[in-house]
Design a protein around this nucleic acid. Sequence first.
DNA 1: CCCCCCCC
Length: 596
Amino acid sequence: MAAQLSAGAIAAIMEGDKRDKPTFQIVACKKMVAANPSKPGDRYRLLLSDGNHNCSVMLATQLELQSHIKLFPPKSCDSSYQLHLYIHCSYQVIVILDATVVASADSVNNEIIGNPKLYQGSSTSNQPTPQGNQSRPVPNNKMASPSGKQGFQSNIQSPVPSSKGSFGGNFSRVGTGLNNNMGSPPKSQPISSLTPYQNRWTIKVRVTNKSDIRTWSNSRGEGKLFSMDLVDQSGEIRATAFKDQVDKFYDVVEKGKVYFLSKGTLKPANKQYTSIQNDYELTFNSETTMMPCEEEDSTIPNVQFDFRSITQLQDTNPDTMVDVIGVAKTAGEVQKVTIKSSSREVSKRDVSLVDDSGKVVNMTLWGKEAEGFDASVHPVVAVKGARLSSFGGRSLSVLMSSIFQINPDIPRAHALKGWYDSEGCRQELQSISESRGMGGGGSTNWCTFKEVQEQNLGSGEKPDYFTAKATILFAKKENSMYMACPSESCNKKVIENGDGTFRCEKCNKDYTEFQHRLLRRFAVFATLDEYVKCNVADLTDNQWITCFQETAEAILGKNANSLGALREQDDAAFNQVFQDAVFSDFIFKMRLDGDM
DNA sequence: CCCCCCCC
């Protein structure tokens, strides 16, 4: 028994009417060129028939609907299927958000029902394609101002199967021209319906995050950019403005505000750098317009988190971006660290984050967020787009692009705070981050130097870290000490002024004293226990390593200042210190710098 | 067209 098609539904939908769960037949199916070759998700365009008309539609990729595709693989494109469809119609493009098979191709003998003609617009006289009415006037966002009057309610029956909750019906249909009066509110479509296949659209979005302006310079050129996170009921997307667009939009865009945003280039998103849930991201171009929405529209949500519990982080691949929420149980002191690549100094603070999955994770804050953080009141911390790393097992870093919120007013935060105050604060929770200074731990990368070579460690752009048991073979004592600035954590080499004072260029100050500092080079031989047995005489795997102050002091068993004094007073004893270090064994945690 | 996000 063949199901009835919803005759006339295509024309009705295209002309602004709404149809609940119309039934169509799929008369053709075409796999599109992958939008993002690195992503397995394919994109399909279907030719639907309501018995009267054909219409080309897109399947939304973000939906679990992809599983339906298995029912009509490209091989059997010519077969006919009937689908019970929930559709969302937006600017000249119908995007299928959900569908149910109600009849197989076999049940209609693989034949096309009726004699459908391509739908070519409401006036069928001279519209060559369904896109043929592009020549009609389009809403002019510069003239239009939102009045709060709602347009066509798409009234989607089935919520999008997504963690983001229900897919509200606040999207409007635009652009068919029929009910498009100039001066009416800008019509918008959902973020989730944006694709590279459609280039005229308007979305109504809240800016939930806005970056500073950043400049870049590389082999492909240089320029400046800023990026922002945009959210509506249907989802989220990241947008970036370059160069001229920075000048045009940076001051217009205000975090938290709602905008009508029209036109831009959609391109595949690189998920490596964001936790924004969209296969695409948006690049502003010369046609892009962005109009503030005059009145606050509370139907446009704010930041959308997709939290993972701390225990789940153990099973999440490192070097990905995650959303996390937890209670700050403890926080370390602010530390000043010097960035190797730029010699820049930044503040960092490690925070222990706990949640009701019963686990603790270490999260690093940087800069002002590190300096201003107070864990004594155990605030709830929510982060969108924290970087998960494998350091110490699993740990987190809050990036410049992350959204970092303290005590956000969301249900999950209140629940966590309640859990912490009533029981969590007294529980002994297990950390998924190795505590600092520990030599062991499941994640320690034990290597011999031979293995370091075999694995090409240190050949990437980033440094590699490994741990080796090694024997000191030789301690080079020449030029191993220098006169350093006496001020704390400066360590800059001072210049002797000749009058008994010492100049530090970094501090721009003269001092009456200096401190000795060590910068040591040791030849070492790395071993693993079974490796040493057969290779102890083989010194091909020796390695020069550089040790800074604290490590060198540990190896030599003397602090730098006493060693400096010894050098001046007793040359033989000074030399003996270096001799004594030879053939002693240590466990070294080493950094092998990349990009050498 | 960025995608650096630091340290152990």
